[in-house]
Design a protein around this nucleic acid. Structure first.
Length: 461
RNA sequence: GUCCCCUUCGUCUAGUGGUUAGGACACCUGGUUUUCAUCCAGGCAACAGGAGUUCGACUCUCCUAGGGGACGCCA
């Protein structure tokens, strides 16, 4: 009980759940689960300007879509404001923090001056020893140690040691009386008994500051694990201009939750040569694997491949039922099931089912010009007419019957299959890419096939 | 500018002093197939560069270069 692992994911609700955030959360969650621990969700909603409750909802929805359940109830950081403030007061009392009356204006000038001189912008400690009292526009600053360094052993990066000279006295309570991020995080992590902080490596620089606050508060700091960022295909940090970056967008595109999860986890984590890990395997084996310490590039191609793999594992009945619950032409009947079985190996995204099945549910309106140019000529039209009359009079309509008829006409003219197969495919589907023509014709049905050939002949004559 | 992190095929990665540097995606070739897709077989392709340490470096150390990140009264 004492040494139970507790991790947390702490997004700020300023937008939908981002792929990068989702992966960090996944790592934190899997880390906890593979150690039989807990993972908590803390919404960092203290930026009242940008935080929106609808975003909180969207974030939680994305996680439940991915089958990630956080433990206990969701914690809202804004509700802990009093705790943060009282921690700040204690710090002032113990002389680990002090009031500061420097204006934003002065700070801004100071920063510019330092930058100009090639220095790292830092607070110069003007009020550090002034022993000021609380005033109407004073802030509280943390009295960061000026000597020594802060070493910590990162779970993924190894030993990192940062000199206190690099750190300055950061503001922990604003002049309007609200606590700032670095204070809130520490107080909440203590409050929630967090044992391991798994977060993006853009937080590495905050870590030594936070460790100093932990110490000043008399608490033991958690173990940290900083996971590298995800980059876009151009090697820059993944952002909006790289296209789809939200979990919700992938859901819309028809990516399966397990596929997205598997892809995201493998992006930066590995266990030997294995690629496919189902949910249970991840939960059981995550801690045996290795988190990479360099940033990785997002690849839609590979995600697509994962999706295809997961798609192929779903049986047709289940697939049909999810498909018919989506905005597609599929419904829960035999015809849809046959269509599905005919086209499923041609699809890697759920959205592919619509485009691949179009001609099964709707009339062929447009013929692919390239296909027409390649396959339709006078001879093709004559052959189509011949096949048409055989089709019309056929008593039975199985794929084998269609096959037989085509071959009969073919052998009469001593021609190869393509002479009829291709034009027929164009007539029935509008293009030359489709499943085998006999099965396609069978599923389409005799009546539809006859009508489409008639229409095509009229169109091309 | 300062500090921090990172660097194996195009991409995701395995590798922890001695390997023909392995797998996956993508790509290419061949086979199966009435087209495409699927499937099967094969192929191309990498240790950023330079110094050390060592009998021996992809593996350890340092430097350089490149990439990413952080430097807010945002989180």
């Amino acid at each position: 009980m004492e040494n139970k692992v507790i991790t947390r994911f702490a997004p700020s609700p300023t937008g939908r759940l981002h792929i990068g955030g989702a992966r960090t959360a996944l790592f934190a969650w899997l880390f906890a689960k593979s150690h039989q621990g807990k993972c908590l969700l803390r919404i960092e909603d203290t930026d009242l300007e940008r935080s929106k409750s609808e975003h909180t909802k969207a974030i939680i929805d994305s996680f439940s879509w991915m089958n990630i359940q956080f433990d206990d109830e969701v914690i809202y950081q804004s509700k802990n404001k009093e705790k943060h403030l009282s921690a700040a007061k204690n710090l002032v009392k113990s002389n680990a923090a002090y009031f500061c009356s420097c204006t934003s204006e002065r700070l801004k000038n100071l920063r510019e001056e330092q930058q100009k001189n090639g220095l790292k912008p830092k607070y110069d400690g003007k009020c550090r020893e002034l022993d000021l009292k609380e005033g109407s526009d004073t802030v509280i600053r943390f009295r960061n140690p000026q000597e020594g360094s802060v070493p910590f052993t990162d779970l993924v990066k190894g030993v990192i040691e940062i000199s206190n000279h690099e750190l300055d006295d950061l503001i922990i309570v604003r002049s309007n009386g609200t606590p700032t991020y670095n204070l809130s995080v520490v107080v909440d992590d203590i409050d929630m008994d967090i044992t391991h902080v798994i977060r993006g490596d853009d937080h590495i620089n905050n870590t030594p500051r936070q460790i100093n606050i932990f110490k000043a508060l008399g608490a033991k700091e958690p173990i940290y694990g900083h996971v590298p960022m995800i980059l876009g295909e151009d090697g820059k940090r993944l952002s909006k201009r790289h296209g789809a970056v939200g979990v919700f967008e992938y859901e819309q595109l028809g990516v399966l939750p397990d596929a997205l999860k598997n892809y995201l986890v493998r992006l930066g984590w590995s266990l030997g040569d294995q690629e496919i890990f189902n949910h249970e395997e991840l939960v059981n084996k995550f801690k045996e694997g290795n988190i990479n310490n360099s940033p990785s590039t997002f690849s839609f191609e590979k995600l697509s491949w994962f999706n295809k793999e997961y798609l192929s594992q779903i049986d047709s009945e289940n697939l049909l039922s999810t498909l018919s619950s989506m905005e597609t032409e599929f419904s829960q009947d035999d015809y849809s099931l046959e269509v599905l079985n005919l086209i499923r190996q041609r699809c890697s995204l759920m959205s592919d089912f619509s485009s691949e099945s179009e001609y099964f549910f709707r009339e062929v309106e447009d013929y692919d010009p390239k296909a027409v140019k390649k396959c339709i000529n006078q001879q093709a039209i004559e052959l189509l007419s011949e096949v048409l009359s055989e089709f019309e009079s056929s008593k039975s309509w199985k794929a084998s019957d269609v096959q037989e008829i085509i071959e009969k006409v073919l052998s009469k003219h001593e021609l190869g299959f393509g002479k009829i197969g291709l034009p027929l495919r164009v007539a029935l589907t509008g293009s030359i890419n489709s499943p085998s023509i006999d099965r396609t014709a069978e599923v389409l049905g005799q009546k539809v096939v006859v009508e489409r050939i008639q229409k095509a002949i009229k169109e091309f004559s």
